[in-house]
Design a protein around this nucleic acid. Structure first.
Length: 290
DNA sequence: AACTACTCCTGGAGGC
DNA sequence: TGCCTCCAGGAGTAGT
């Protein structure tokens, strides 16, 4: 569930809390979570100091001195909490367990003890996330090899780039296309649904069927959803259900609830193997499906 | 090229 | 109450 906004929020917090601290000890509680590059090991990073934290799509890269780096992907349910005493200096990712829960949790797989007595916990109830121990150059190579598209919240996602991208993938439905990290980087199931709802586009529309106005609308919708989530708070969805006390997300996780725009009940349909929520009135199905 | 199915895994929800 | 099944989700891979 951690998508671009969750990782970006975490990145900003860790950028403030980690630099200049060094790693005193690393406790690995689930071996497969840690993936050291050949020639490196958990021991390699003991004593190394954090320099900076960066986001690449949904990847989080922590640059250390000695040319070392940690590359995290939180996948479905990964969470990072940097805590000193009872105080969270940074916390983000999947909201289960709650960020203020006692740590380590039974699903905490990795604990970094840092030079000021604080600790960084990686918790992941689904065990799909990972932390790679690598070098600056190998991290850059690894990221580059993903061939990620323009960042959904970055300046590279322009009308021109989006138009060209859609033209290259004319036959692909919008939902799987937007989930494809090589098309645009950072979106996941929740924010794709939100962007499509905001742009009044049905998830099964083919990329090549969009008018110029619709492409423009899609671009603005992606950018708007990203900035709302980053600036005003990420979507709170647990087990596929949107938090009933918040009005964001608008469509995702709101089966049967009235569309905030027109009042028509939101429907759920399986698209590309994923639950997709949309308004059947505002987001008209493609002609071929009617 | 584009699609589906399957894999990794756990926990929460709902049915009976 | 307790079993059972289903579902959530990112992304890689294999097969059609």
């Amino acid at each position: 569930m951690p998508e671009l906004p969750e990782v970006e929020t975490l990145c900003r917090q860790l950028s403030a809390s980690l630099p200049d601290l060094s790693i005193v000890e690393l406790e690995l509680r689930l071996a497969k979570i840690l993936k050291p590059d050949p020639g490196l090991s958990a021991d390699s990073i003991v004593g190394a100091r954090f320099e900076s934290v960066e986001r690449h799509g949904k990847f989080l890269e922590m640059k250390l001195d000695r040319d070392l780096a940690l590359l995290f992907h939180l996948r479905l349910a990964g969470q990072l909490v940097h805590r000193k005493g009872d105080v969270n200096l940074a916390a983000g990712g999947h909201p289960v367990p709650p960020f203020d829960a006692p740590l380590p949790h039974k699903s905490t797989h990795l604990i970094f003890s840092l030079s000021d007595g604080s600790r960084l916990f990686m918790t992941d109830i689904r065990q799909f996330g990972f932390c790679q121990i690598t070098t600056w150059a190998s991290a850059a190579e690894y990221i580059s090899a993903r061939s990620m598209g323009p960042d959904a919240a970055g300046p590279g996602l322009t009308l021109e780039a989006l138009t060209k991208g859609l033209a290259r993938r004319k036959q692909t439905r919008l939902k799987p296309l937007l989930l494809d990290q090589t098309f645009v980087a950072g979106l996941g199931n929740i924010y794709v649904d939100e962007a499509l709802w905001l742009g009044r586009l049905h998830p099964l529309r083919e990329a090549g069927s969009l008018t110029v106005d619709e492409v423009t609308s899609l671009l603005h919708s992606i950018q708007t959803v990203m900035s709302i989530a980053i600036d005003e708070g990420v979507a709170h969805v647990v087990n596929g259900r949107a938090d009933p006390d918040r009005d964001f997300p608008k469509a995702h996780g709101r089966l049967g609830q009235p569309c905030p725009r027109c009042g028509t009940p939101i429907v759920r349909e399986r698209v590309a193997g994923r639950s997709s929520y949309y308004c059947p009135n505002c987001q008209k199905a493609p002609a071929s499906d009617r």
